[in-house]
Design a binder for these strands. Structure first.
Length: 528
DNA sequence: ATAGGGTTAG
């Protein structure tokens, strides 16, 4: 690039070159590519910078395409080649490609140095392969703040909030000098765990260090929104008054919607032309709150701004109508979508499922599985389908789907899938099969089964009056979670009630009182 | 060349 740039100045004044300049400014990536083609020598370092240029301009396929050519042409590639390629792999979620690139790095001796390894940590965590991420991290000889941050945000990305905080604690112990990136991830972790005290402490650290207040302020707004403290979120926004930007405003708006501060949300929206992005996140808030009326208003705003072809926004609308019981509206939107992604299909299946139409849900699912649909069901899809089957008592179909998930689609069922499947078997009265499943799981996991599984098994025992197994599970659950989880007492108490052991019911109620647990008041989620 | 803030399905 730098070798070519001066020539632009040489020829200013002519109309052709004015055009050239405009193209240059407007489409930097395309121009960079063009200039690159004119280079007499394609030396490795310029090829490497081309790889990252593609990545930066949002073209990971370009990075991989060039990398393949380079790989064919020359066996000598440097670590500067691999880092952008790893970034492209992570973006495209091709775990196999990523592993192959890693293997090639080892073969060429390029899997050394903190920067290369940090790129690997990042890639594996984006695939969800946390174990590999940790292995690479442990092999880093000179761990710097960036590699620590990559590990921290990896845990955060994969929903392991507690582990992420553990990494932060380790950084403190190891006296790593933390950066604003660290603080940012920690704030987000506090938000995901909804831990108010720790979040406030980090807020104090942010104020003390005083760095990058726009980005960290946005994260703080997200944190206060997630713990329901909109007044604090607003305060952060007000304090940074002059330095706010669109991202920050969007964070505040979606926080307002999530917390039902609609007046403020729409007032803030009127400050600037709302983006499709903020409307999409606002719709998610409406879905969570079942607020059809607000959802419709946002739909109107989207129509007025011409966002109806935004696929993510359409998915948000589809989900909102489905969650608010407007199945006809949801179906109409779904049918009109030209590009249906796995999210669209899953939302549509879920819309039927939550509205009690298991048969229709399965019909959509089968259509999705056909060749022509262009998408593959993933683990979320199967969770939705299994819960549809459990809900509607579709036992045979549920068994078939669970089998398909493992055999045809090679997906590994998670705890949530097993919970649904146990529920299905329970509806069929098949506690024998449930028990065989539990025994197999115990064998595989060295007796450690997640509590959620025991909870599902106990419910099955209650429903089917399986006294012996139920009492075993009840005891196990009490040992493992009783002291810290009030809902365990309620669950176990319900089991004893179901089998008619009233003395045990009383004992559970007594224990509940002893611990000072108070039953939360019930409330309806329907907006009148 | 590696890490960070606001979007969609559980």
């Amino acid at each position: 690039m730098s070798a070519r740039l001066p020539r632009l100045g040489d020829v200013t004044g002519k109309s052709t070159n004015l055009f050239y300049r405009i193209v240059f400014l407007r489409n930097f990536a395309a121009h960079a590519d063009h200039v690159f083609d004119e280079l007499p020598q394609r030396d490795l370092s310029s090829l490497n910078s081309q790889l990252s240029s593609y990545l930066r301009s949002g073209n990971p396929n370009g990075t991989l395409g060039l990398f393949h050519k380079m790989h064919r042409a020359s066996p000598d590639l440097s670590s500067h080649t691999f880092t952008p390629v790893l970034g492209a792999c992570a973006l495209l979620s091709y775990p196999e490609t990523g592993r192959q690139v890693h293997a090639l790095m080892i073969k060429q001796g390029a899997e050394t140095g903190t920067i290369s390894k940090t790129a690997l940590i990042n890639m594996y965590s984006k695939y969800g392969y946390l174990a590999d991420s940790v292995t690479v991290f442990e092999s880093v000889e000179d761990k710097d703040v960036v590699s620590w941050n990559a590990l921290l945000s990896g845990f955060l990305r994969n929903g392991k909030g507690k582990e992420a905080l553990g990494v932060f604690a380790a950084m403190y112990r190891e006296r790593v000098e933390i950066s604003e990136f660290t603080l940012c991830s920690v704030v987000k972790t506090c938000a995901s765990l909804k831990i108010l005290q720790q979040g406030k402490q980090v807020h104090a650290m942010v104020v003390v260090t005083g760095r990058d207040l726009v980005v960290l302020g946005t994260a703080m707004i997200g944190f206060y929104s997630s713990v329901g403290l909109m007044s604090e979120a607003m305060k952060v926004y007000m304090i940074l008054n002059v330095h706010t930007d669109e991202v920050m405003l969007n964070s505040l708006i979606s926080g307002c919607i999530r917390n039902r501060n609609y007046k403020e949300a729409f007032l803030l929206m009127s400050r600037q032309r709302p983006s499709a992005r903020v409307l999409t996140s606002s719709l998610a808030g409406c879905s969570d709150n079942s607020d059809l009326w607000i959802g419709k208003q946002i739909h109107c705003v989207a129509l007025r701004n011409g966002f109806v072809s935004d696929s993510k926004l359409c998915n948000g609308l589809l989900d909102m109508y489905g969650k608010c019981g407007q199945i006809v509206q949801a179906r109409t939107l779904f049918s009109a979508m030209p590009c249906k992604s796995v999210v669209s299909w899953t939302s549509m299946i879920d819309a039927y499922a939550v509205n009690g139409d298991g048969v229709k849900a399965l019909e959509i699912f089968r259509e999705m599985c056909e060749e022509g649909s262009g998408v593959l069901p993933n683990s979320v899809t199967f969770l939705v389908v299994l819960s549809a089957c459990a809900h509607a008592g579709l036992v045979e179909e549920g068994k078939e789907c669970f089998g398909m998930m493992k055999e045809k689609y090679r997906l590994v069922p998670g705890t949530e899938h097993y919970v649904c499947f146990i529920d299905i078997l329970s509806k069929a009265g098949d506690t024998e099969e449930i028990w065989r499943l539990v025994e197999r799981m115990m064998e595989k996991s060295d007796q450690n089964i997640p509590c959620a599984i025991w909870v599902a098994v106990l419910s099955a025992c209650s429903l089917n009056m399986d006294v012996t197994r139920g009492e075993y599970v009840a005891r196990r659950l009490m040992e493992e979670t009783g002291p810290v989880n009030s809902s365990t007492y309620v669950l176990v108490s319900n089991f004893y009630a179901a089998i008619g052991k009233w003395d045990m019911v009383e004992e559970m109620r007594g224990k509940l009182k002893e611990k000072g647990f108070v039953k939360a008041a019930g409330h309806s989620s329907v907006i009148v």
